[in-house]
Design a protein around this nucleic acid. Sequence first.
DNA 1: TTGAAAGCGCTAACAC
DNA 2: GTGTTAGCGCTTTCAA
Lengths: 337, 337
Amino acid sequence: MPVTIYDVAREAAVSMATVSRVVNGNPNVKPTTRKKVLAAIERLGYRPNAVARGLASKKTTTVGVIIPDISSAFFAELARGIDDIASMYKYNIILCDSDQKLDKEILLINTLLEKQVDGIVYMGREITDEHLQVFNTATVPIVLAGTKERSEELPSVNIDQNQAGYDATTRLIQGGHKKIAMVTGPFQDPLAGIERFEGYRNALRDNGIDFRQDYVISGKLTYAAGLEAANLFMSLEEPPTAIFAASDETAVGVIHGIQDMGKRVPEDIEVVGFDNIRLAEMVRPRLTTVVQPMYDIGAVAMRLLTKYMNNEQVDHHIVVLPHRIEERQSTTQLSEE
Amino acid sequence: MPVTIYDVAREAAVSMATVSRVVNGNPNVKPTTRKKVLAAIERLGYRPNAVARGLASKKTTTVGVIIPDISSAFFAELARGIDDIASMYKYNIILCDSDQKLDKEILLINTLLEKQVDGIVYMGREITDEHLQVFNTATVPIVLAGTKERSEELPSVNIDQNQAGYDATTRLIQGGHKKIAMVTGPFQDPLAGIERFEGYRNALRDNGIDFRQDYVISGKLTYAAGLEAANLFMSLEEPPTAIFAASDETAVGVIHGIQDMGKRVPEDIEVVGFDNIRLAEMVRPRLTTVVQPMYDIGAVAMRLLTKYMNNEQVDHHIVVLPHRIEERQSTTQLSEE
DNA sequence: TTGAAAGCGCTAACAC
DNA sequence: GTGTTAGCGCTTTCAA
């Protein structure tokens, strides 16, 4: 039923090979022939079959993307960066939500590999041995974006989470605070759960501030968790005067929790968030936060993948992008500068 | 290099056809044979090539999804619904950001068709004749999600945008307001720009309230636009006492704009938003808004598409999902009930 | 500059 | 139950 390359060949009175050359922009075609073929394509409404092409050429110009949750502001922004660069390099993306479930992740990787994607961008919590095992069966490159991998064998793009946690905490210490609490991710989460938390603890230690267990709450980094954390902290005998939340959504929850109790941010309590999703500007006071270049993490990861797919030289397979702190109104301005 | 079905056949001492049967769960295989084949597959680490299968079977178990912007909370939620149902039916998704650009949309549709997707879910502003033309060249089903199409020929899933705008406005009128302003989308946008606005105007008319041009601002529905709109409205000689914003993000901007001027929501001015993205609960006061079942729109669209792909009977190709108003604190409670 | 022909890895009759 | 075989629509040598 549909028009094939053979139909075009017949219509243009040339061979399939010539049609193929024209379609693929091969310069070794006489202009008149090219014109003839193009006309036939137009006349017949020919649309090349990419599946057949993929089988013959062993390239699909499609990459797989595994993402924990596309409806999260953070990952959606990463995805946007990935997609933009992919589109720039003429790749399409097979997007797979993994829900952070290990078995679903493994299944998805296998499915993507079966579909003969030319490469994979993986986003997730952590790379386990099981992941590594499946990745090893792949003959195509894989790049991690915003994902922890201890062995540092796989190419990856990230920020220095530990340092970022350290910096956020230090910022609060510079503001004169000694009673600094933190809302961190689940301790199973190597990035938002552990690394940022360790940065926090190191900053306290380096500034001679005792670590207090009751100043730390670990759990899902939701808005509700921030609300609740604020309540808990404020009901302490000696409530903190500053709170560092490991996600913006949680930080906004913290701010609202504080405000709901009649306290003020930053006058009574200062708050610092993490990520710099757009929400950070949609709260009063606007949120001071650690800027993670989300779009860039995605974009750079995809760019890196294109290099691998084209067998280009790659200098550093581990890319650490810079982070910084965006000063807004949930902290008071530092006086000394 | 990679293991093919032929290698497995040889290893298991059966024919390719038998291997194919085992892989595809065809029951016409003796259990002992099946075991033998499975063992060979395991031993060789065979992974079926979905591209070859697609070429032979003319099915790719992949659907294309065109989306204006995956980093928008609204569309990300739709995408999530689409992906969940797709995954449930064992389909993968090729996700394409269109940026609402007509030529990119057309290009993407063609690319998806070349890649032999089994169907397409399209999200966008409006279906033009040019869209229709390309869609007509497709031999696979296409379903629109949250997208306006006048002819009502194409299957689609949406809410009644006009009625929703009407309801939101009516809610404000019931609150005793006569001076009701609206921030609406660009007038080129048939959904957020025109339909909701017409609902607003009809509600005013039906309640004997004169329409005032200076109570309407049309433009991009961003947070900043809301901020700005609030400023404009408040600087009017006779400022409105209620504002209906055609998106939650804009509504939150309106709220903050009002608060920044020292006025209070809802005491001085009431605000109603649209969509019910998660942001609506992350603002003080929490936002009263028109609930669009975003996830469901995506999920139902995908479900509908599976029916078409399986040649199942479809009763209504135009699905209109219910909307409702979620009462929160940016409006005062209605007294009469 | 062009054409012929051999696959790419699999499915789906059809025959046994 | 199982095997044989002819494609699916294209790319890619290799010759001409």
